[in-house]
Design a protein around this nucleic acid. Structure first.
Lengths: 418, 418
DNA sequence: TTGATTTATTTTAGCGTCCAAAAAAATGTT
DNA sequence: AACATTTTTTTGGACGCTAAAATAAATCAA
């Protein structure tokens, strides 16, 4: 259904386009902005005057060697996002650790603050306040005024409900339905949003190469669990309850091995670290505790064993790859993405899984569908999650600022710092 | 990524909104259009004057008892889509049959023309021309000038590639990659588009109850095959190659029974009519010809047997339901839709499958995801497919006409009728 | 019958945003 | 110093929307 359009929409959209373009390409001269956005020089002048006036954008002089344009004529003056316009914060939650990354409006980050926290056993109503406390302390430490932060993005390992702002289930917590967004907003008075790790990785991929990833892309995250970020028509897909893409808990084999979620035969029960470890230990029975976190060194050891020819270890990784392959086959049958990206620490052993993934794809997917999909394994950087969270958060702010009326941000009205 | 906005966009969007609103609600007075669209009376006057001038809309007098407003004051004059503005055509392709439904711009249809055609054995390059011939003949018979038809929508059982306009694979054809859109466009000189049945059913559901279905909805079609129409964020999802949602060929069980697509263990191999029939005949081996169409009377007979207590028949339907349930569980894990709709002739025996579907959902899906999804079985009307096709086609035209410049329709430029 | 009242539609005057074209600015070239 | 070149700003107008005023067309009430 279309929406009513008027000059307000035009302003919002073109200001948004202006900010987006600066964010993507970095500082640009007005003339270049004109080319990139398709707007006329006159409009660019007008919009930039406003944005400069509002403090969102500033002029960074002539900057000597503007590549390619050191000819004659009036020199270009480049415009940039004003770092001082506002600050944002990315929070990444995983087992026993919470990471905070502060950034300014131009996207420049401070050194990440990695906090150890006993997430697993913390009472659920204490978690939000505890994080809020840490945020206050670290902001203070870095000399960032709390009221200069206009938005907080949160990434979580596990299921994130983007609508309620809670964590319905996560390997990081024993408890369920942990409220995060509400307590943080209440205590800090700053708008928050939450999403899952895989979606954030998808966001960071879009940011690094928009053209490549902004079609229909599925980002499969391999690690302690198996996650999925879906980019559909250039936008990260959230589902009806903000809980889409529970790829790890997509059933592979009815009545298969026990999964952390309590069901049997989920993909994760084969292909996540604990599934692989269980398989390697040949312990299908209930003497294996699926809830125990697999220690990184144990996993490394298993990888080494496989690489040096241990058949039991190799079989475990092969099986993980096979099941993953069938999962991806199902995914492709449903979504028909242009591109499937494998990411996460689990890709370290991609070589041990590769052949089985492909064999499963051959067995489980018609050639017509398979042949168009491009596969890619991306080297995993831990910062992909916080980067993606920041990108998402800043883009949201761009849209808000594009309205050009602070009044259009109800969440800012009468905001007080607790 | 945002797009540049200007007054052109505003015009397009508001004219589109105007037409969409009339299409959805039927004839409306200007004042009501104002309320529905959010546009001011002045704008409505201006837009309607243009559309009337262009012949897209006309005034249908006062029409006596305008419900609720037979009070005093200046009477409303209602506006309606002008049936004479243009004509469209929906073509529905299935095994041995091609159906043509002509409609005018207001959506009023002529009696469907159901043509018998030996689709299965027709040489692939003859199919398009053959259909074109039938279209010409039937248009003539109905007194519809070919050049009054501005768009043709085609629905097909099986896989439709919306980008190439071909049918990569369909149970209706022995051949593969049957060109449809190109020959029709070449011979008739009319823009065509193609889609699959399940998507068209999804379109027709959106048209009947926008509010209910335009969130995230999955429409599962049960019949000779198993299809899926995905409505994501209110829009029917097509995938990267226009071939999304090959739900029927989503693998259920590695190395399971042979499917028509040549793979083993596809969902369809259990839950489509031929899968059920094979199971009932207890013929897992290769003495069962998966390519033979199941006759409707045989299927009815099996249904009757099951309903009167035949355990073999009951087991076949139960198994079909179980596999379908696991398929839906996987679908929900990936997409997290608000609503899952079962449609198609296969729903006749929903009662025989219901319990197994639910049991499979219980086994294959975490409760957290399951609890939010609403299930629905819609009575199947054969016309859902052509209705959906027409709706989709007319909406496309609305958008084209909304530009207000025939020049904006490159496909119309210099069009000649062969 | 006539004027008051009511409701729908059209007209008028003005606003915001965009854009083409002209003007101005700032530098290089000769 | 005059001209050339390129970027940016200014000017003047177009388009589409809207509030408010004007008009239209009916009912109601005396």
């Amino acid at each position: 259904m279309l929406k009513k359009a008027n000059s307000d929409l035009v302003r919002r959209q073109n200001r948004g386009l202006f900010l987006e373009t600066l964010r993507q390409h970095g500082p640009l001269a007005r003339i270049t902005l004109g080319h990139r956005t398709g707007l006329s020089p006159a409009s660019i002048t007008s919009i930039s005057a406003q944005l400069i006036d509002e403090g969102l954008v500033y002029s960074i002089g002539e900057d000597d060697a503007v590549s390619g344009h050191n000819k004659r004529g009036r020199p270009q003056t480049r415009l940039a996002l004003n770092p001082k316009a506002t600050n944002v914060l990315a929070v990444s939650i995983s087992v026993d650790s919470v990471e905070l990354v502060f950034a300014d409006f131009s996207g420049v980050t401070h050194e990440p603050a990695k906090l150890r926290m006993d997430t697993y056993d913390i009472p659920k109503e204490e978690f939000g306040p505890r994080v809020a406390l840490e945020i206050k302390a670290n902001a203070k430490r870095l000399g960032i005024a709390l009221n200069s932060i206009t938005r907080i993005g949160i990434a979580v390992q596990g299921v994130a409900d983007t609508i309620t702002g809670e964590i319905p289930w996560s390997p990081a917590f024993r408890a369920r339905d942990i409220p995060v967004v509400k307590p943080l907003e209440r205590i800090l008075g700053i708008p928050c949003s939450i999403g899952n790790n895989a979606n954030m990785i998808a966001e960071s991929l879009i940011a690094t190469d928009r053209k490549k990833y902004s079609g229909n892309t599925a980002v499969v995250f391999l690690g302690h669990g198996v996650g999925l970020g879906l980019i559909l028509n250039g936008v990260v897909y959230d589902g009806a309850n903000g809980r889409a893409a529970e790829f790890g808990h997509m059933n592979h084999l009815p009545d298969g091995p026990l999964c952390r979620c309590g069901r049997q035969g989920c993909l994760e029960a084969f292909s996540a670290d604990y599934g692989i470890m269980r398989m390697a230990n040949d312990r299908q029975g209930h003497d294996f505790d699926v809830h125990a976190a697999v220690r990184d060194e144990d996993m490394r050891e298993l990888e080494l064993a496989a690489e040096s020819g241990d058949t039991v270890a190799i079989n475990a990784f092969n099986r993980a790859g096979e099941v993953l392959g069938f999962g991806i086959a199902r995914l492709i049958a449903l979504i028909n993405p242009q591109r499937v990206v494998l990411a996460g620490p689990g890709t370290r052993v991609y070589d041990l899984m590769k052949d089985c993934i492909w064999e499963a794809l051959r067995r489980g997917l018609v050639h017509d569908l398979r042949k168009y999909v491009e596969f890619e394994v991306v080297p995993y950087g831990k910062d992909m999650i916080t980067t993606g969270t920041l990108v998402e958060t800043l883009r949201h702010l761009d849209r808000v600022f594009a309205t050009g009326q602070r009044g259009a941000m109800p969440e800012f009205a009468g905001r007080k710092i607790a």
